[in-house]
Simulated scan of single mutants.
Amino acid sequence: MKTMTLEVMGLKTQLNIMISILIFTLLMGRPLVINAKEPQELQGFSYSPFEYIVREQYYGDMLPWEDVRSLLPHKVKFQVIDLDTGLSFRVQKRAGNQHADVQPLTRKDTQIMKEIYGNSWSWKRRAILVNTNDRMIAASMHGMPHGGGGLSNGFPGHFCIHFAGSITHRTKNSDPTHRLMVLKASGKLAEYRNEMNPYEIIDLFITAINQSDPYMLQMTLSEPHTLQMAAILKRMDRMGMVSKHTSFKKLKKLPIVALEVPVELQSYQRDQGKERKSYTFILTRDVITNRWEILSEDFLNLM
Rank of each mutant, 00 (worst) to 15 (best):
residue 27 L to G: 08
residue 122 S to Y: 00
residue 287 V to F: 05
residue 278 S to C: 10
residue 41 E to S: 11
residue 55 R to M: 12
residue 47 Y to W: 13
residue 263 V to N: 03
residue 105 L to S: 01
residue 28 M to H: 10
residue 32 L to I: 13
residue 148 G to N: 10
residue 150 G to D: 12
residue 134 D to W: 14
residue 30 R to D: 06
residue 130 V to M: 09
residue 123 W to S: 05
residue 75 K to L: 10
residue 23 I to R: 14
residue 274 K to T: 15
residue 181 M to G: 01
residue 60 G to R: 06
residue 10 G to D: 08
residue 141 M to W: 07
residue 63 L to G: 01
residue 7 E to P: 04
residue 265 L to W: 04
residue 283 L to D: 05
residue 239 M to F: 11
residue 296 S to K: 10
residue 53 I to G: 08
residue 92 Q to E: 13
residue 190 A to K: 09
residue 121 W to K: 02
residue 4 M to L: 15
residue 193 R to V: 13
residue 166 S to Y: 02
residue 26 L to W: 04
residue 207 T to G: 05
residue 24 F to S: 03
residue 212 S to R: 12
residue 106 T to E: 03
residue 131 N to Y: 15
residue 241 M to L: 11
residue 75 K to S: 12
residue 224 P to I: 02
residue 21 I to L: 11
residue 151 L to A: 06
residue 218 Q to P: 07
residue 42 L to N: 07
residue 208 A to M: 11
residue 143 G to T: 01
residue 51 E to A: 09
residue 105 L to I: 00
residue 2 K to L: 15
residue 66 E to W: 04
residue 24 F to G: 02
residue 61 D to F: 09
residue 120 S to W: 08
residue 275 E to K: 15
residue 265 L to F: 04
residue 88 S to H: 07
residue 183 L to A: 03
residue 163 F to Y: 13
residue 29 G to M: 03
residue 44 G to D: 05
residue 168 T to Y: 08
residue 99 H to T: 02
residue 223 E to D: 14
residue 174 S to G: 11
residue 136 M to Q: 06
residue 85 T to Y: 00
residue 45 F to S: 00
residue 5 T to F: 09
residue 285 R to F: 07
residue 230 A to H: 12
residue 224 P to Q: 02
residue 128 I to L: 09
residue 228 Q to S: 11
residue 233 L to W: 01
residue 290 N to F: 14
residue 1 M to V: 15
residue 239 M to P: 02
residue 287 V to H: 06
residue 263 V to A: 00
residue 43 Q to P: 00
residue 293 E to M: 13
residue 58 Y to C: 10
residue 13 T to N: 06
residue 77 K to P: 02
residue 172 K to Q: 10
residue 61 D to V: 15
residue 261 V to P: 09
residue 299 F to P: 00
residue 274 K to M: 12
residue 63 L to N: 03
residue 241 M to I: 14
residue 143 G to S: 07
residue 231 A to G: 05
residue 51 E to C: 03
residue 112 I to M: 07
residue 257 V to S: 13
residue 2 K to P: 08
residue 278 S to G: 10
residue 63 L to A: 04
residue 157 G to H: 08
residue 64 P to T: 15
residue 165 G to A: 07
residue 86 G to C: 08
residue 159 F to H: 10
residue 113 M to T: 00
residue 251 L to K: 15
residue 84 D to P: 09
residue 288 I to R: 14
residue 250 K to S: 12
residue 216 M to R: 00
residue 35 N to K: 03
residue 115 E to R: 05
residue 284 T to V: 14
residue 107 R to E: 02
residue 39 P to K: 00
residue 20 S to T: 08
residue 98 Q to A: 06
residue 285 R to I: 10
residue 251 L to E: 14
residue 108 K to I: 09
residue 124 K to I: 08
residue 209 I to W: 03
residue 93 K to M: 05
residue 137 I to Y: 01
residue 119 N to M: 10
residue 219 M to F: 05
residue 56 E to T: 10
residue 23 I to C: 10
residue 164 A to D: 06
residue 13 T to V: 08
residue 232 I to T: 05
residue 104 P to N: 07
residue 246 T to N: 05
residue 30 R to Q: 05
residue 56 E to W: 09
residue 38 E to I: 03
residue 202 I to M: 08
residue 145 P to N: 09
residue 303 M to W: 15
